[in-house]
Simulated scan of single mutants.
Amino acid sequence: MAVKRRAEREISEREKVVKKMRGEEDDDPLVELKLCTENIILAGIIKKKLTNSDLDHLSRVILPGKQVRNYVLPFLYPAELDEVERGNGRGGLMVRVKDLDTDTIHWLSFKKWESSGSYKLGLSWIQDFVKRRNLHKDDEIVMFWVDDDSTRRGFFFSVVKRFYPPPDPSLCEFAREFLSLSPLTPDYNSAWKERCSSIDDYLAVRN
């Protein structure tokens, strides 16, 4: 048993070294927790910081091409890959997307964006994700493809970091003008120090 644990640690350390050489970050602890809850083992995680174009009327989110090619496309059937890469005159491959945060199932279209070499998830992206989850620019999401069970085959989605914009300056001005904080409670020791003329007096009071 001890030999097995040592071997597992060595494998884990080697994986960390490889990640560091590739410039990849360790997986987000929150995502790892969700994966454990769902009993999921996956090839890799697609990370994306949302931009304005992911949130507007175009109704699609752009996924990094390299990550999709590494972590999703190898697990598609030939007919599915053909729909994603070429579209066959249609809107792409319809894929199941589970929101890990809300435990809900959605369906989006998945296809290659020819002009950039990236990939996009569309159709009801705005309604089912942007509006429903109140997503904003610079929020960070992760997505990954699960292929171990036909009943849940598809993308899994999670919001891992929210971007909170700075407060409205007008509200700050209002607070400065009309709101006031309670006065600070004087420090007990400091008050006695000010009343004592010498350190000996101070020590006498303390004792």
Score class of each variant (00 low, 15 high):
residue 64 P to Q: 03
residue 65 G to M: 03
residue 66 K to H: 10
residue 66 K to P: 06
residue 69 R to C: 04
residue 69 R to H: 02
residue 70 N to H: 12
residue 70 N to I: 02
residue 70 N to V: 07
residue 70 N to W: 10
residue 72 V to H: 12
residue 72 V to M: 10
residue 73 L to C: 01
residue 73 L to W: 03
residue 73 L to G: 03
residue 73 L to R: 07
residue 74 P to W: 01
residue 77 Y to G: 08
residue 77 Y to M: 06
residue 79 A to F: 08
residue 80 E to P: 03
residue 80 E to H: 00
residue 81 L to F: 06
residue 82 D to Q: 14
residue 84 V to D: 07
residue 85 E to F: 00
residue 85 E to R: 13
residue 85 E to L: 08
residue 86 R to Y: 15
residue 87 G to I: 00
residue 87 G to Q: 04
residue 88 N to I: 00
residue 88 N to W: 08
residue 89 G to A: 00
residue 89 G to H: 02
residue 90 R to I: 02
residue 91 G to I: 03
residue 91 G to H: 09
residue 91 G to C: 06
residue 91 G to D: 13
residue 92 G to R: 00
residue 92 G to N: 05
residue 93 L to S: 02
residue 93 L to H: 05
residue 95 V to L: 11
residue 95 V to H: 10
residue 95 V to M: 15
residue 97 V to S: 12
residue 97 V to Y: 10
residue 97 V to W: 10
residue 100 L to C: 06
residue 100 L to D: 07
residue 101 D to L: 05
residue 102 T to R: 13
residue 103 D to M: 12
residue 105 I to K: 14
residue 106 H to L: 05
residue 107 W to Q: 13
residue 108 L to H: 15
residue 109 S to Q: 10
residue 110 F to I: 02
residue 111 K to A: 03
residue 112 K to F: 00
residue 113 W to T: 12
residue 113 W to A: 15
residue 114 E to G: 07
residue 115 S to C: 13
residue 116 S to L: 08
residue 117 G to D: 07
residue 117 G to E: 02
residue 117 G to T: 01
residue 118 S to E: 14
residue 120 K to N: 08
residue 120 K to P: 02
residue 121 L to T: 04
residue 122 G to R: 04
residue 124 S to A: 11
residue 124 S to V: 12
residue 125 W to Q: 12
residue 128 D to R: 06
residue 128 D to F: 00
residue 129 F to D: 08
residue 130 V to L: 02
residue 132 R to T: 09
residue 133 R to H: 14
residue 134 N to W: 07
residue 135 L to W: 07
residue 136 H to T: 12
residue 136 H to S: 12
residue 136 H to W: 11
residue 137 K to S: 13
